[in-house]
């Protein structure tokens, strides 16, 4: 069964090499750095850190080439992006209200039975909204895949075959961070979900998010003011029942128990894991085997080391 190693950000204080050694992983590596967009393939720092060569799969570049040569597919992808954007806007508008209601209920200094019911109900509404959005996204992707099957696009089918061969020949696959929407989009275009299940995978930051089932965007301190954490996309589900929160120390108000408690309850029974510099989580045969540094959000609004039961 598969090993999946989830790490915190790698650009300031990389721990990839030690994490690989601890997990007993090694050998020829390929990397997915499509989240870096135009910087895709700039692997100098990573190779220096590993003291070993890494082959980039160049998904971003491949997609650009496919789009140039298959304008019909490009137009369809753009149309899908437009529809996804609109779905997200509408979900976001509804989320504003659902989140405001949940916050208001949680802020009540009232432990009466009606208040407790109101709190449960408000969080339930939030969870139902997320679940509905997730179903809509899955349906949307299924429709697209059916309409634009790679079997009918020889260029795309060729690229998919090429990538599957490269991954099959590798001992380990790295999925780097970056722009999570671009990363997901390119990985989905080349059908990498099933292929990745066959190899050990090491992913960090946005790469980790892409491997979970639910990709949640969040930032409590952007210059335009904090937004609501929002369910953004379906991931590839290599790791189940988790939400990964990269850069949580700088992006999340971890000291605010109300916000943290709400986030934890909203995505339960999945666990919300923080991923900061040096953090490491190792899944083996679908179970969390070791954890170092990463923390888990709790229902009561605290944070605990990832491996510790609440």
């Amino acid at each position: 069964m598969q090993d999946v190693l989830i790490l915190g950000p790698q650009f300031r204080a990389p721990n990839l090499r030690t994490a690989l050694a601890k997990a007993g992983l090694g050998g020829p590596a390929v990397a997915i750095t499509a989240g870096w967009q135009e910087r895709e393939g700039e692997l100098g720092a990573l190779e220096e850190h590993l003291a070993a060569p890494v082959v980039d799969l160049r998904l971003y570049e491949r997609a650009e080439a496919v789009f140039v040569q298959d304008p019909e597919l490009h137009a369809a992808c753009r149309a899908r992006q437009g529809e996804l954007r609109r779905m997200q806007e509408l979900y976001r508008a509804r989320l504003d209200h659902a989140k405001a209601a949940a916050r208001e209920m949680l802020a009540l200094e009232d432990d009466s039975a009606p208040a407790r019911r109101a709190r449960r109900s408000a969080i339930g509404a939030l969870r139902r909204l997320d679940a509905e959005h997730l179903r809509d996204l899955e349906a949307m992707h299924a429709r697209f895949d059916e309409s634009w099957s790679p079997d009918r696009r020889p260029l795309l089918a060729g690229q998919r075959h090429d990538l599957a061969s490269m991954i099959a020949a590798a001992a380990v696959v790295f999925v780097a961070g970056g722009h999570v929407a671009v990363l997901l989009n390119r990985m989905r275009l080349f059908g990498l979900g099933p292929v990745l299940r066959t190899r050990p995978v090491v992913a960090w930051s946005a790469g980790a998010m892409a491997l979970s089932e639910r990709v949640v965007l969040f930032h409590d301190r952007p210059p335009q003011g904090a937004g609501n954490a929002e369910l953004f996309e379906t991931g590839f589900g290599l790791v189940r029942d988790v939400v990964f929160l990269p850069h949580a120390s700088s992006r999340l108000a971890l000291q605010d128990p109300r916000r943290i408690g709400l986030m934890s309850r909203r995505f339960a029974p999945g666990h919300c894991y923080t991923l900061d510099d040096g953090d490491e989580l190792h899944w083996h045969r679908g179970r969390l085997r070791t954890a170092s540094g990463a923390r888990r959000l709790t229902r009561s609004g605290g944070v605990l080391p990832a491996g510790v039961a609440a």
Partner: peptide
């Protein structure tokens, strides 16, 4: 300018996790 432009044209900060 920061307050105006980031509100009217939010950047990919929300989407990027390096």
């Amino acid at each position: 300018l920061q307050a105006a432009l980031t509100w009217l044209f939010p950047g990919p900060l929300w989407m990027v996790y390096e």
